[in-house]
Design a protein around this nucleic acid. Structure first.
Lengths: 140, 140
DNA sequence: CCGAATCCCTCTGGATACTG
DNA sequence: CAGTATCCAGAGGGATTCGG
């Protein structure tokens, strides 16, 4: 699945219709996914659910920093996109189980590849960020 | 490079210190990259620069929908993180060339894998999104 | 040609309080 | 237990204008 790196150039060709993408608001599927899971909490939740199913408060305890509001919103949107499933058990008190859908599981692979890249190159990125505005790289 | 899917669970383990990540504002390297490149224009610019170097107005012509302000901002931040390089040629009129850095090129691989996933599964996601709030999946 | 500066609007996300 | 409802601050992003 495109795992083998065949040389870098134009590997993203299929998401760039033409050299000049033309139309108004580009709907790039890649950017769509990036923004989808690029919010503050989705990756964290997906990663936890990648291990095992969780119940709502169980997730909340595992990620104390998230507010109830944002946890709910994150779970709802992940469910809306079909990345996770939500099952209500009509017990007393009620319990709700969240788990990764097959679609969500299939996303973990590519995400993991990106995560590998991230941890590997973060030092280099950080070095660049802390570098002052650069004394201007110009050539006559 | 983690391309082979070894069974889904805990593939992102290295970005999850413990089951309970603890501290205040989690600094997840993966989320950091996702947000970095998940803005509106970065992927598009990176993809173009993945083909060949571009000059400023050349990029602007290739992506008419982007404002000068956002193009500049996008290029600046990509440069700040070391993903692209900026070279000023002191000609008249002046010209500025942007090109992918080696770091930027190394990112295209993982991004491309995610792009493949995106185009492959987008129909399924769209089907889910258009599905009404679901008649409640509950079990006693 | 390659930007910087300003204004303004929207969307994200946090705090807090309340409910079936 | 598993959420909703409100309010509010800050970042993202567009339009427009000006400058070296």
């Amino acid at each position: 699945m495109s795992g083998t790196n065949m040389g870098v150039p134009s590997m993203l060709a299929h998401v760039l219709p033409t050299p000049v993408p033309a139309a108004e608001h580009e709907v790039c599927p890649l950017t769509d996914v990036l923004r989808r899971v690029g919010d503050k909490w989705s990756v964290l939740v997906l990663t936890l659910l990648g291990r095992r199913p969780y119940r709502y408060n169980e997730l909340h305890r595992s990620v104390p920093a998230i507010s109830q509001r944002m946890l709910t919103r994150t779970l709802r949107s992940l469910e809306t996109d079909g990345l996770i499933s939500r099952t209500v058990f009509a017990t007393v008190p009620p319990s709700v189980e969240y788990r990764l859908s097959p679609l969500g599981e299939s996303l973990l692979g590519p995400l993991s590849a990106l995560a590998d890249w991230a941890v590997q190159h973060q030092p280099e990125i950080d070095r660049h960020r802390q570098r002052p505005p650069s004394p201007f790289d110009s050539r006559p």
